[in-house]
């Protein structure tokens, strides 16, 4: 009995954590296809594997990408090119890019 209650508790916690991730507000409205289209702009400079001069972003955590883009958008991170790119992205576009790059192989 104790065992069943424990398993139930674990199951509920997992579900909540999972839901919490999905409901991560920064990734709300993410649209994979849109992300794929928008990624074209990033891939002019970001390579898939090399970090020489410009970091590789393929396979990076979605939340990490979204947060970075927001910091550039708010000009809290330096780099004119990235500030410019991020300033032209809305919330949905940032979320879409984040999940798209996360899906790519490192």
């Amino acid at each position: 009995m104790v065992n069943i209650v424990f398993k139930f508790f674990i199951a509920i916690s997992c579900l909540l954590i999972f839901r919490g991730l999905l409901a991560e507000p920064l990734l709300d409205g993410a649209d994979f296809d849109y992300g794929e289209y928008l990624s074209g702009q990033c891939l002019t400079c970001h390579q898939s594997s090399s970090d020489e001069g410009i970091p590789a972003i393929n396979g990076a955590e979605a939340l990490y990408i979204a947060k970075k883009l927001i910091l550039y958008k708010n000009k809290e991170l330096e780099n004119e090119v990235m500030q410019l790119v991020a300033s032209a992205l809305d919330k949905e576009q940032i979320a879409s890019l984040a999940i798209y790059f996360n899906s790519l192989e490192k």
Binding site: T44, C45, Q47, S50, I54, E80, L84, S87
Partner: peptide, 29 residues
């Protein structure tokens, strides 16, 4: 929509970084 240009009074470190960034861009494009 929006634009930028490097500044004349930037330090050497920044200029070096800009050059390195261009190498990344060349490989990227």
């Amino acid at each position: 929509v929006d634009k930028f240009v490097s500044k004349t009074d930037e330090g050497n470190a920044k200029r070096k970084k800009t050059y390195e960034e261009s190498i990344g861009w060349y490989n990227g494009i």
